[in-house]
Amino acid sequence: METILNINNLTKKFGYLTAVNNLSFTINKGNVYGILGPNGSGKSTTLGIVLNVVNKTSGDFSWFGGSTSTHDALKKVGAIIERPNFYPYMTAYQNLKLVCKIKGVDYSKIDEKLELVKLLDRRDSKFQTFSLGMKQRLAIASALLNDPEILILDEPTNGLDPQGIHQIRSLIQLIASQGTTVLLASHLLDEVEKVCSHVVVLSKGKKLYSGRVDEMISSHGFLELKAENTIKLQQFLETEKVFGEIKVEGDLITAFLDEPMDAKTVNKLLFENGIILTHLVKRKESLEEQFLQLTDNN
């Protein structure tokens, strides 16, 4: 698989504070990556380093297998970090024209990308008149001008209203479906869960996990059960080896599976042992639960 970005033992210290601690991961072509971590976990710093605006303390990184210099590589990258930064006195079109000049892209791309983010009717309005959602979409249009190999977004939905969040997310999914690699930094777990296929979890500058989202915890899921005779059900579950930890909250019993077992088999097993269920749900931990579990353990 083609490597887009390779980060190797990267460290960044701000005085005594270690913002990024010995971080290594690789981004391959064609996936949607999420960088997940609470505020202050080093997401933006890591992106700042690979985007040439923050100086690393030690370690190294290479773009596209290390064949090009960072600032040349950045011409094949589209990125927005934190807030959309444009010249307030220029119109949307003029701002994008400036980006074209920097990246060496033809001006004909401008209208195409404005159309994509649905800002074509505002192309001649000044940037300072835009709402935050529009500014953010303009930033995405600007990042896409060069048809980048990889699109890097740092908390793209931060501060937006639900409608704006939805627009940005569907935009990201559209871009990803067209084969562009996306790297999305966020502290919003459901955002990463909805959009990303791979995830890197950071906490205090350290990598806790990197890999596929659905393999983040090697768990077989858990069951939520209710029966008329709760005590009998609980006693039965405790004798069975398949079930690990069992939690009781009122009449709802949550049983964690130690081995794979589907809901049908559970139902059948319990029925054969004279327990009739009134409620049965099999679930996997949500990313949020997995994430909290990961960050708690460290």
Partner: peptide, 21 residues
Amino acid sequence: GNEYSNKTIKQNLIDGLSKKE
């Protein structure tokens, strides 16, 4: 001063302008 206050200096660099440029 404006490049700093608008943070466009950051965006310029991210867009592929080198610091020397």
